[in-house]
Design a protein around this nucleic acid. Sequence first.
DNA 1: ACTACATGTCGAAATGTCTCGACATGTAGT
DNA 2: ACTACATGTCGAGACATTTCGACATGTAGT
Lengths: 113, 113
Amino acid sequence: MHAYLHEHLDMNKDYSRAIPEAWQHMSRVFTALGDEHRQRILLTFERGERLNVSQIVAVSTLSRPAVSHHLKILREAGVLASEKLGKEVFFWVNKPFLAETFDNTRAYLEEHL
Amino acid sequence: MHAYLHEHLDMNKDYSRAIPEAWQHMSRVFTALGDEHRQRILLTFERGERLNVSQIVAVSTLSRPAVSHHLKILREAGVLASEKLGKEVFFWVNKPFLAETFDNTRAYLEEHL
DNA sequence: ACTACATGTCGAAATGTCTCGACATGTAGT
DNA sequence: ACTACATGTCGAGACATTTCGACATGTAGT
């Protein structure tokens, strides 16, 4: 379990008890992408593409409220970003955030697990 | 949406429609790690540590059957590996698989999204 | 074979998440 | 102000997951 005795001589001795920040972000990303509908929504986007809600609904098998629900979860997790332009709301992949989150998780894996 | 016209001149033109294999794996990993209890189980492990079920139950707030359920999901997703030794079943983090899965996802993000 | 221990499985209740119609909000043009 | 359109939200039913007690299996020692 948690030994509270580490070979590294840094100051963060109780680091093992707290869930690191990279995992806090990753937690929501995992939850957001754990659903197949939301994965399909994410994979709908091409490089740098911006899509409005109607376009996403068009390629989805779900109703508009259901898509809206999933988009909200993806946005709140930081996976997608959005901007309102006139009547429409455009969504796009928050690539920098995803890249950073995956990198942090990858680094944590290498370091601690 | 999916343009079916790519700038890369490779053979996989219908790649955009199929969910890539890296995502197939990631899908289960995301589902497995989308749950906070399962995240805590994963983070219980120290570097290279092996824990039996009783030890994991001891640090968890859940009952043994519940922990067993989560361990099954983590094992089937490939996050944890297990081995029976006598009466006990030991679990450990499947680090190579996780590393590969994260790397693949990271690469896919950089390439396609 | 019997006991003690470790773990897995089953099933039903509790809990959580998803879904869609109906309604609300907000924007642009006439 | 009115109409048309795009999107968000609410709530109740449908659906999926989680949870734990009770039981089953399997292993080691006496």
